[in-house]
Design a binder for these strands. Sequence first.
DNA 1: TTAGGGTTGAGATTTGGTCTCAATCTTATT
DNA 2: AATAAGATTGAGACCAAATCTCAACCCTAA
Lengths: 153, 153
Amino acid sequence: MVSILLMVKIMKNEVRKFQEFVRRNKLLWSNEREIIAEQVFENHFHFTADELFIQLDQKGKNISRATVYRTLDLLERGKLVGKIQLQSGKHIYEHIFGHQHHDHLICQECGKIIEFHNDKMEKIQKKISRKENFEMQGHCLKIYGICSKCQKK
Amino acid sequence: MVSILLMVKIMKNEVRKFQEFVRRNKLLWSNEREIIAEQVFENHFHFTADELFIQLDQKGKNISRATVYRTLDLLERGKLVGKIQLQSGKHIYEHIFGHQHHDHLICQECGKIIEFHNDKMEKIQKKISRKENFEMQGHCLKIYGICSKCQKK
DNA sequence: TTAGGGTTGAGATTTGGTCTCAATCTTATT
DNA sequence: AATAAGATTGAGACCAAATCTCAACCCTAA
Ligand SMILES: [Zn+2]
Ligand SMILES: [Zn+2]
Ligand SMILES: [Zn+2]
Ligand SMILES: [Zn+2]
């Protein structure tokens, strides 16, 4: 009688993408990178590096802040997550992979973030860059103001 | 024989505007505020708080960092200077008074900043805000890429 | 199994900026 | 001009976010 144990690691598509990116860049795939990526792709909106660190900590994963920061950098370089700077100077992260590019409306009162995408604006930006002989790589548009809920208060 | 000495302080228009703002807000007009404002309006492009502090220091003005930061905040509140956040997290300042609103192209290679203004884009932003019932107060658009000079390298 | 080299954790360090508070200055009022 | 109330300042302590250090450890290819 023969028993075959087949270990197949179920890996989220996004995590696998990250793994591919890491390998493609001749870096090593570590446990920590996998755990962090998993958590990142469980967060379905914006989060800070420290929030992510605390989430992991609460799950009993002992991963240092440094590694969280380092891995978020890697994820950003791989274009799997985006990094956005708030006016306060703090950074927040969000998925990119599988999501359409978008910009943000940010409420100055409660911090609420509304996402939007506008093709016409994207095109204008490309046009402006061309006119200046500027090789556009990316952009960052944030509209600051007061959200509808906070206006009522 | 009578001799009249008339002391008239020559003050740049921009500095006077700041003085008016300070007085309007029931704050006091100090020597430090005047010296800082003068230096600010001598800078005809973007500068950091620390650069400003060093400029003043090199001129022999003994003004503390704290006061420089505090005064820049005030100038910003008075809408006399604008504060822009770079991707690195650093802030740069620039005149606003007497200048048209504009956005920035920022070279990732050499740091060069090109200013531009596009009315159509401003309008689209207002439209987007209206649609979301968002009371727009301001916005920040930065286009990142490589300037023509750096492309040639 | 091993060697070479990438990765990690703990904590120190850096950075850009803010806060504290006693001394000082500004301004309005006598 | 003197005074009093309150705003401003400077020096340095402090802060949070992020980065760096380096020895111990882990991954991978051979
Ligand atoms: Zn709100
Ligand atoms: Zn978003
Ligand atoms: Zn350049
Ligand atoms: Zn500008």
